[in-house]
Write a protein that binds this DNA or RNA. Structure first.
Lengths: 240, 240
DNA sequence: CGGGACGTTGACGGTCGTCAAAATTAGTGG
DNA sequence: CCACTAATTTTGACGACCGTCAACGTCCCG
């Protein structure tokens, strides 16, 4: 376990606008700084937390990239999401005081550990923090609605298109390119998230390349025709 | 719109243990009673709220049965859940102040309207209420993880088995039979929830009947062999 | 009694999973 | 730094599962 007592203030963190509420006073910001226990480094393939582990904190990603997954008894698992800088993990643990999924770093990462009892006590006093916590949980619920729609009613091409557009959009919001991205996960992990087998993911990538929609060099993806991807996502319509 | 200003206290509501925190003092209970604005009756096929509508309250179901669904532009939709007495709806609206799904009554229903600003202000003072709200949202996130697992990795039989077991378990927790249930939704709605076409749902029911696992008379279902259903859910294992 | 919504069943086809082999890359230890 | 092994990815062939289309049956409600 990599616990480093690196104390760095939210006030000087460039991820603040992603994981913290806006318009805080200096005093409020100071109290939030105090709330955050430590930062923790997580190496590639290491677990931040795992199913069954006691829950006591939420985690804000400072750098790096994670996947969360739920496992069945027999060892197969469903990837429930991919998380990047500024996003919050651990919400699954609140209901039962135990985590119900695994969080694994897909690249070397650093997270801010936010003890949940401190979040609760502070958000009783800082209204904007309280509302922010509610919004973060609601956002996760809405995000999962979108995944359910994807898994329940889209075909392979549509799923991969939606996946790529979502990734690149989130990366763009963090200052990265709108057209190029590096996949931090394997085809199998993409497949698990999208409810497809890795061969289908690979084949669908190949099809997109043939059609000139994307260029793929291993995990390096360049989106050539974003409109075509967007149309695929909507083109459940085409059946009419 | 059916707005009835029926004031009935949580303190005398038999759903309280499902939707409210335990161990409240009389005074706290009184304040929660005050928080709840009104009850609202919703007739079968009426909408409690719809996508795009302004969000301002959560809803606790007192009686009746709902479905929630997200829609695509072309009118098809994905059912994201079925809700029954004691469950909370509307969490999707917190993040953006607008609802992002539809909630439709599948039978005549009655809900308690809980203005969200009042929930927030009261939960700043009543710690157990604050924690309860967090738990409810976390529970919804975990539930959706389960649905993602179902949609992403189960076959038709496994999905329907999991669906029936989940329904009957929730009904049992409300004092209904552990083996008999009345489906309040159509085959198409079940299919939408499970990522299947209605014909597949119907065929799978028929298969269960042939195998003596359930008895089906329209929407009346009797579970004859719950173990067989449970095995189906786990028997992703059988592939090894 | 009749129309419409809902449910069942059959035939057929398409999408995607399975199995297998080869190619390419990444990782490890000498 | 290179060699070697493991992991990942690609591609093909084939088949199963489920979607599509269609017809028919059943139930409910006016």
């Amino acid at each position: 376990m990599n616990l480093h007592s690196i104390k760095v203030a939210c006030s000087s963190c460039n991820m603040r606008e992603l994981c913290m509420p806006q318009g805080l006073s200096d005093q409020e910001l100071q109290r939030i700084d105090d709330m955050i226990g430590v930062r923790r480094k997580v190496k590639r393939n290491e677990m931040l937390f795992r199913n069954g582990e006691r829950f006591n904190a939420l985690y804000a990603i400072r750098t790096g990239f994670f996947k969360t997954s739920v496992a069945t008894e027999d060892g197969r698992d469903q990837v429930t999401g991919f998380q990047m800088a500024g996003e919050i993990m651990g919400l699954d643990g609140i209901v039962s005081d135990f985590h119900s999924c695994d969080a694994i770093a897909l690249e070397d990462a650093e997270v801010c550990v936010m003890p949940f009892d401190k979040i609760e006590s502070l958000s009783r006093e800082v209204t904007s923090l309280q509302h922010h916590v509610h919004k973060i949980m609601s956002r996760e619920i809405v995000r999962e609605h979108g995944v359910m729609l994807l898994l329940g009613s889209m075909r392979a091409e549509e799923r991969l298109a939606a996946f790529l557009l979502n990734l690149v959009q989130r990366l763009h919001a963090r200052g990265f390119s709108q057209t190029e991205l590096v996949l931090r996960m394997t085809r199998e992990e993409i497949g698990s998230y999208l409810g497809l087998k890795l061969e289908t993911v690979s084949r669908t990538f190949s099809k997109f390349v043939e059609e000139g929609i994307v260029e793929v060099k291993q995990r390096h993806v360049r989106i050539v025709n974003a409109d075509a991807l967007q149309q695929l996502v909507n083109n459940q319509v085409a059946c009419h």
